[in-house]
């Protein structure tokens, strides 16, 4: 799975730490998602979607081998 979390974060001008606080996770979790080491749960994805005011599909996309 690919994601454009970093881009979305840049649009809102948030740091990893600020975004983490906003949705109630640790900074390391945001970092892990951005570097494709952790796939977030649906709950977390929806929280991000709410914050970015965009559907989940806009920043999370499936890859060929998924």
């Amino acid at each position: 799975m690919k994601n454009t979390l970093k881009v979305e974060r840049a649009i809102l001008n948030l740091t990893q730490d600020e975004l983490a606080k906003e949705i109630g996770v640790s900074r390391q979790t945001i970092n892990s998602i951005e570097t494709n080491r952790y796939v977030p749960s649906t709950v977390l994805a929806l929280k991000l979607s709410e914050l970015f005011k965009k559907p989940v599909n806009d920043f999370f996309t499936l890859e060929e081998n998924d």
């Binding site: 109630g24 996770v25 640790s26 390391q28 979790t29 892990s32 952790y38 977030p40 749960s41 709950v43």
Partner: peptide, 11 residues
Amino acid sequence: KEKIEDERIVQ
């Protein structure tokens, strides 16, 4: 618990 016990920590 960890300081921030989020879903990644649980995993």
